[in-house]
Design a protein around this nucleic acid. Structure first.
Lengths: 229, 229
DNA sequence: CCAAAAGTGTTAAAACTACACCCATGA
DNA sequence: TCATGGGTGTAGTTTTAACACTTTTGG
């Protein structure tokens, strides 16, 4: 027991809410909690913060352990420092949320914990204490932020059709949008650029592909442009 | 040295960015940093999180120690967990920002630290490491949030005139607003209710006082109403 | 030739912006 | 009576919302 301090210190963890789009719904990644506690419920992926890594690094490390994914959108959500019930050790958890583009990628399970799975956000399984409220807050943040920050793109592949993009918004905001008005708005944003490429092997007219040009977006944002859907 | 752990743990602190409105500007509260380090610069009020209090409780305690104020708007801002330069102990800081209504209240200095003062946000003094970036982030959050959440009221007394409210927005957003359009918008919000009371002892026509009815606001918000200035 | 999604404009309603004068009060 | 800020309405412009049909492609 080599680490001693003058005052007690809470343990510090990160927890990650990873969102992705699949089967027409927003999905969240959960892992089986391997504690011996009741019923072996599900939990957000997460773990201890090491003393030689930043909080963001810890979150990325845990996310990679859970999904094998790197290079995903990751943003700090909130820090939960509630007191634990008597007898438990105090844990402070810095929660992050991630937006993952699953399209075409295989989701890696993590053997050392047993199990990893994606659940539709509407019907999450029973989760360990507090994790349901972290999940709610993360989803609320996503719903709020998607309207005025260009984060919807993060859930799609680099090349996407306008229909796919509209679908992202319809699923997150939980309402239908008007196709023509949506296209008008998106196409007026010069950082959504058409590629010389169209869909293939579809049983209907092939859609144009677009890509999100972050550079252009940031240049505009700096000039005061305010993204909005 | 009674507290020993298997793995090293960072120290946990809270830092508070307290904003108030005074002398036609947004002010931020700073304390003299009593370390023996260079030049004795200013710092955000803050301190260690005790093991028997939540993060929010710690923030309120530190704020009360600095200003004597209770019952202020307090919201978590961000958790800073960057690595310290070699040789320093790792510190993780959970930052909060507070909106304080100073009107008519005396700001208590805190004797045990020597000095407390309010600085205009435009010209902050030299501050200890990192605190300037916490301050920037807090101000950015305030500027962003004030437009779509009814937090501007927190900087005013319970009774306020529409002119005072407009002034809050003009100062935070740093641009003039049109008086008639502003009134039209605010008066269309039924949670801003006129009181049976007007200004006194002013050398011009006395203004009507209003108050922010949080109950009514929350009822509307639940129904999907979106505040916006 | 059928099913399925792509793509495309117009119009009415609502929201926003700009703008100027008279009123009430205390000094 | 003067200086100061309180309070009020309208018209032009911009933005949003609603809405239906033709085109392309593969099966």
């Amino acid at each position: 027991m080599p680490y001693t301090y003058e005052f007690p210190r809470p343990a510090l963890t990160v927890d990650i809410v990873a969102f992705a789009l699949a089967r027409e719904q927003i999905q969240v990644m959960l892992v089986r909690h391997d504690s011996e506690s009741l019923g072996n419920p599900w939990a957000l992926p997460g773990g201890w913060v090491r003393v030689d890594e930043t909080l963001g690094e810890a979150a990325r490390r845990e996310l990679r352990a859970g999904t094998g994914l790197t290079d995903v959108f990751l943003e700090q959500l909130y820090t939960f420092g509630g007191l634990e019930p008597d007898g438990c050790e105090r844990v402070v958890s810095v929660a992050y949320y991630a937006l993952v583009n699953l399209a075409g990628r295989i989701v890696q399970t993590r053997p050392e914990t047993g199990d990893t799975a994606w659940f539709p956000i509407q019907e999450p399984p029973e989760m360990v204490l507090y994790h349901d409220s972290i999940l709610s807050m993360a989803y609320e943040r996503l719903r709020g932020k998607v309207r005025y920050q260009p984060i919807g793109f993060e859930l799609l592949p680099d090349k996407f059709s306008l229909r796919q993009l509209q679908h992202v918004y319809e699923v997150i905001l939980d309402r239908k949008l008007d196709k023509r008005n949506f296209r008008k708005k998106v196409l007026s944003m010069e950082f959504v650029v058409a590629l010389n490429e169209i869909e293939k092997d579809v049983a209907h007219r092939a859609a144009q592909f677009y890509r999100f040009d972050r550079r252009k977006y940031e240049r505009l944002a700096k000039k005061g442009f305010q993204f909005e859907i």
